[in-house]
Amino acid sequence: MMNPNIGTDGKEQKLTQTITTMLLTNHNNPQQPNLQPFIPHFTLPIIISILSFKPLHSHPKILISFFKWFQSNAPSSLSHSPKPLLTLLPPLLSRRQFAAAKSLLLDFITSDHPRHTLHHHLIRADHSVPKPLLDTSLSAYVHSQQPELAYQIFNKMKRLHFRPNLLT
């Protein structure tokens, strides 16, 4: 039970710490720890904090497993937001987990149709969107039969002076 005297930020921080500790201590066990009791307390900032937790970045399988669990168990208001996915993808891509990143993108793009919230975030984002994320997103949009959205990402890459590679 959380201490009621702890402020909202303290509760969020404690919850994030509890979940990340559970994930890391369970990293050799292929089964996900029981996180069901925490679902009512999930907010977008908590999910972002968990996915941003640097020690988890060296365990891509844990990150992917948690993200998939979150997508299938969290309320739709949270699971339909592209922000958790956009938080997860850069650490995966930096660890050269391209196939896993593309698979997550394809799953999200399919569920995101016709809203295209992910696409809007990618197009409207500032210069901080890494090139591998744009490359992989472009490929995922093509594979999901949405070449017009892929073309818009390609044009953004040109505006940012990102040189195309074989994937692009």
Results as ranks from 00 to 15, higher is better:
Met2Ser: 05
Asn3Gly: 03
Pro4Met: 06
Asn5Glu: 12
Gly7Gln: 06
Gly7His: 08
Thr8Gln: 06
Gly10Leu: 05
Thr16Ser: 12
Thr16Tyr: 01
Thr16Lys: 09
Thr16Met: 06
Thr18Gly: 01
Thr21Ser: 11
Leu23Glu: 06
Thr25Ala: 02
Thr25Trp: 10
Asn28Glu: 14
Asn29Ala: 03
Gln31Asp: 01
Gln31Tyr: 01
Gln32Ile: 15
Pro33Cys: 11
Asn34Cys: 11
Leu35Arg: 06
Gln36Lys: 12
Pro37Ile: 01
Pro37Arg: 10
Ile39Ala: 04
Pro40Lys: 02
Pro45Asn: 07
Ile46Lys: 02
Ile46Asn: 02
Ile47His: 01
Ser49Met: 01
Ser49Arg: 10
Ile50Ser: 05
Ile50Phe: 04
Ser52Phe: 10
Phe53Met: 01
Leu56Arg: 01
Leu63Cys: 13
Ser65Ala: 15
Lys68Met: 09
Trp69His: 09
Phe70Gln: 08
Phe70Leu: 07
Phe70Arg: 08
Ser77Glu: 14
Ser77Phe: 13
Leu78Phe: 07
Ser81Asp: 11
Ser81Gln: 15
Lys83Ile: 07
Lys83Arg: 03
Pro84Ser: 02
Leu86Gln: 12
Thr87Asn: 01
Leu89Gln: 03
Leu89Thr: 08
Leu89Ile: 13
Pro91Ile: 04
Pro91Glu: 06
Leu92Lys: 06
Arg95Ser: 13
Ala99Gly: 00
Ala100His: 15
Leu106Gln: 15
Ile109His: 08
Ile109Gln: 02
Thr110Ile: 00
Asp112Glu: 12
His116Thr: 04
His116Phe: 14
Arg124Pro: 00
Ala125Glu: 05
Ala125Gln: 04
Asp126Arg: 12
Asp126Gly: 15
His127Thr: 03
Val129Thr: 15
Val129Gln: 09
Val129Trp: 02
Pro132Gly: 06
Pro132Ala: 11
Leu133Arg: 02
Ser137Thr: 11
Ser139His: 10
Ala140Tyr: 08
Gln146Thr: 06
Glu148Ser: 12
Leu149Thr: 04
Gln152Cys: 09
Ile153His: 05
Phe154Glu: 09
Lys158Asn: 09
Arg159Ile: 01
Pro164Leu: 12
Pro164Arg: 07
Asn165Met: 03
Leu166Ile: 12
Thr168Tyr: 00
